[in-house]
Amino acid sequence: MSPRRFSLARSLLATAGVLVLAWGIDRLAGQVLNPYLYRILVLCGLNVMLALSLNLVNGITGQFSIGHAGFMAVGAYASAAFTVYAVPRLFGVGPEAAGAVVMAPLFLALLVGGSASALAGFVVGLPSMRLRGDYLAIVTLGFGEIIRVAILNIDAVGGARGFAGVPHRTDLAWVLAGAAATFLVLRNLLRSYHGRAFLAIREDEIAAEALGVPTTRYKVTAFVIAAFFAGVAGALFAHYTYLHTNSFTFMKSIEVIVMVVLGGMGSLVGSILGATVLTALPEALRFASAERLIIYSVLLIVLMIARPQGILGKTEGGRR
């Protein structure tokens, strides 16, 4: 494909299109779906964001992070604290407000969450200068746990009681817009000069370095971008449901990794597919309530044996 010149009009049009579509789907889903299915769709969208962003680090850059829930937690708590403590003063919008008046504060809260998380991503990305493979992985895991325990000990955000009083402002439209934004940004990034640099590091770090790719800078960048979107997902989550650190244990990180690997490492469409399948699967297995997680784990093992490269492998589906 030939690179197209950047066009502001086209970008704005695409953004508007995505927003209208997200809003439309939200209205439709609110009409035809029961609250349970609506909730699963929201969780699906959040997981898509998490899987896509993790894919940038694990699949596209070839690093190995198992601390993604930590970034989500930073984003969730930073944005929730912003909404609870700063928004009433800045905007005069209290927690009980609803409708169009909360849109700007929520958008700002998402940015705050994403930025706080991106900063954390920078800090976590730094050890990647010295550490590789499993050692890097265990440091990211450690970071995720440290974040969780640290938040658990901050009383201003509820500590072990959970953060009560965060208004629920997220709906499906926000989540869909967030997921679409994550997908589009990563897709465009992948097609750019920088995207090739990420892929080069994955294929052979030493060769990439030899060809003049500043590998450390790109690895840290991958962490920062991934952390940003995970933070936004966390922020959306914080404004959707009850906020407690138990939602961000390392099991959550594992869950996201499984989505990425199942969909296909390095495949964006695969991540969307993996996140959707793995969010829906435990719900679909509810008929076998007690055994559903046993079936889930067996399916996971069988899938990995039958299709070790994930559903889509490195491709985006369709043409190769």
Binding site: N58, I257, V261, L262, L293, Y296, V298, L300, P308, Q309
Partner: peptide, 20 residues
Amino acid sequence: SSRLTALITAIGVSLFLENV
């Protein structure tokens, strides 16, 4: 297979043992 595939399999086994 790749090491990550093996890792996910190990996670699957872990979940299996816990839930069984």
